[in-house]
Design a protein around this nucleic acid. Sequence first.
DNA 1: GAGTGGTCTAGACCACCTT
DNA 2: AGGTGGTCTAGACCACTCG
Lengths: 243, 243
Amino acid sequence: MNEPRTTQGAAIIQALRQQLTSQALTGGSKLPAERELADLFDTTRITVKEALHHLEAEGLIYREERRGWFVSRPRLVYNPASRSHFHALVAAQQRVAATRVLSCESVLAPAELVSEMALAPLSRLTRICRLRSIDRRPVLYTEHYLIPEYFPDIGEQDLGQSLTGLYQRRYGLRYGRSRFDICPTAARGEAARSLSLAEGSPVLAITRINYDQQGRIIDCDREIWRHDAVRIRIDSQARAAAS
Amino acid sequence: MNEPRTTQGAAIIQALRQQLTSQALTGGSKLPAERELADLFDTTRITVKEALHHLEAEGLIYREERRGWFVSRPRLVYNPASRSHFHALVAAQQRVAATRVLSCESVLAPAELVSEMALAPLSRLTRICRLRSIDRRPVLYTEHYLIPEYFPDIGEQDLGQSLTGLYQRRYGLRYGRSRFDICPTAARGEAARSLSLAEGSPVLAITRINYDQQGRIIDCDREIWRHDAVRIRIDSQARAAAS
DNA sequence: GAGTGGTCTAGACCACCTT
DNA sequence: AGGTGGTCTAGACCACTCG
């Protein structure tokens, strides 16, 4: 097997992994403090911390800033190409969803969106920021950028519900095609704070540009998922022959 | 801006980020040694290392085991739903692709695939392991698990080319639908070694189950991408109305 | 106020890569 | 052989959370 020599760190990882997969530690529960683990394994906090980071990268545990380490729950299976509503999707997987609206305001279009959305320079967009939780744990930070002309009075609507549904009911807009990018990156700024993640923690960023049925761009949304909270699943049909 | 107090680590990150985005350090080049950076910023290796890990999570730099830190090149834009060949895809983005076949052998079906692929317990599958590079940097480790009945003599074929093309030309098999999962996780074992990643480094795992045009499962493939080397891009058409 | 993780110091030895 | 990152020691103080 060409097994690398077992380091102390690897031993800690293995011991914890076993506890985690054998359900001795179950979803949502808190791990002992780093200092306690260091005593337990007769080593230092730095070594323990390294081991915990490995398990975090695997998605078995997660951190909440200055609160401690917790056991991850199963990932939400999510298809960004389907238009299913977050609350319905979560409920279908026997979990409890919640949405909190963080802000809704008019902002100058960020530079990268000006070209992506084919806007005039210095355009204004309506930005809606929301934080979504599963089983009381915040897992998804979203920013929607709307073309304001299509969405008068959006600020007076209930934004805790599905925006897709609202677009259709209130504004008569239905999605046509959309394009999305999925990119593993690191949490920064507001997204990190809202998700109670340390700056630089790995996340999955999904950026989507939505067109209506006439092919006009109507909005763009950016989802920042905790990397251990989600698994993307997509069914695809056969295409034209490979090139 | 509610800026968190600037720590020493944050200062290092900012300084390096600036150098990286201003192209003072360009793709592929090597960063100074950790000890050198520690001197430069008048701090310890551990602090420097932490900062480097942040930039790694962002995808701006990457590590090669015991060789050093390097500046990332632009991510490959990849659509796993399209059947385009790796070499063609890479060439279209002005990069140079290479494929190395690591192994091709008959193995006992891994437990998780037995259920996923609806196999009889203790079935055997043909496993092909390959390592793919862009601009001489290994970025993608793949394992294909084939139903052996459909692929006689596969071991004698040239496996460095596109397997999709080979399936069709040699075996008359064409893909119908497929289902794929995209999951941010950590590198382990053979995949970590081949990609010269430390155990536990973040990667993007894409698992795909492929059906032929008659709806039979013909193979399953597992791609392990270096997390900073790829960006998934998918175009989707409108679906039936949201539930 | 006690406990937690976040950050940091100032070193050390080892395993591996490069020359 | 010399340089690199990988791992580790044995502490320290700070910022934040929670009861």
